[in-house]
């Protein structure tokens, strides 16, 4: 018990605040957390499965849907994660592997086991963590873009966000993307800078939600970037 309390306190405030607030809401809050997990982690998990020996276990989408439905229906599943001090993405990968192995055992008992060859190949493919982390990086960037776009809309900064996307994602020069907004290139650069601050906070929130300590977020971002080189 003491260990569990200590582990929970070790989590950064922003992550604890959001997760705790949702979990304290009961069923609805857990649905919000589940929604977040599916939106951010499903695609990286799918890519992980496709590159691993587990790809023979079934359709990745079905396995992932089954995994989320099974594990997230358990009230104590995220409590286990918080006590573990693991990053959320590692917790979910391990959970997915355990889930697939459980499914194998269940199929065996039910008389429709996997082939011996497929079962013999089941292992935890460490090298696939790289592909998973690359996919997770893209996933949190997409999520952060979605949140930053919504934030900009709320603040009447939609033009700022549009210029940010055109310049930083579509690689248009400011001199081009400013034209639809009736501003010059210099103003467009400042508008993108404003949108970038919203995006920056959204990315850092996503990394924090994965369980990274506030002081380690820059290290985490640097690690992810090195994986993308």
């Amino acid at each position: 018990m003491a260990k569990q309390r200590q582990s929970k306190e070790a989590f950064p405030a922003t992550q604890m605040t959001w997760i705790n607030a949702r979990l304290d809401e009961g069923v609805k809050g857990r649905r919000d957390v589940a929604q977040h997990l599916m939106e951010v982690y499903a695609e990286p998990l799918r890519i992980y499965l496709l590159g691993s020996s587990f790809r023979s276990a079934g359709e990745p989408e079905e396995l992932i849907n089954g995994f989320f439905a099974n594990r997230l229906a358990r009230e104590d599943y995220l409590e286990g994660w918080r006590a573990s001090e693991k990053r959320l993405r590692r917790w979910l990968i391990n959970g997915l592997i355990f889930y697939i192995k459980e499914e194998f055992r269940r199929q065996k008992r039910g008389g429709s086991p996997l082939s011996e060859e497929a079962e013999a190949n089941l292992e935890d493919p460490e090298d696939q963590y790289r592909a998973f982390d690359q996919a997770w990086a893209a996933s949190i960037v997409r999520r952060a873009m979605s949140e930053a776009a919504a934030r900009c809309k709320e603040e009447d900064l939609e033009a700022h966000w549009d210029i940010f996307v055109r310049h930083h994602v579509q690689q248009q020069p400011y001199a081009v993307c400013c034209q639809d907004h009736g501003v010059d290139a210099a103003r467009a650069a400042v508008m993108a800078r404003t949108a970038a601050t919203r995006f920056r906070e959204a990315v850092r929130d996503q990394v924090s939600l994965d369980g990274a300590d506030e002081t380690k977020i820059d290290d985490e971002l640097a690690g992810l970037r090195s994986l993308l080189q």
Binding site: A138, V141, H168, V169, F199, R200, V203, A222, L224, R225
Partner: peptide, 12 residues
């Protein structure tokens, strides 16, 4: 990957 890396760099 290049765009994702660039965008993550903006958040660092």
């Amino acid at each position: 990957h290049s765009t994702v890396s660039h965008l993550l760099g903006m958040a660092a």
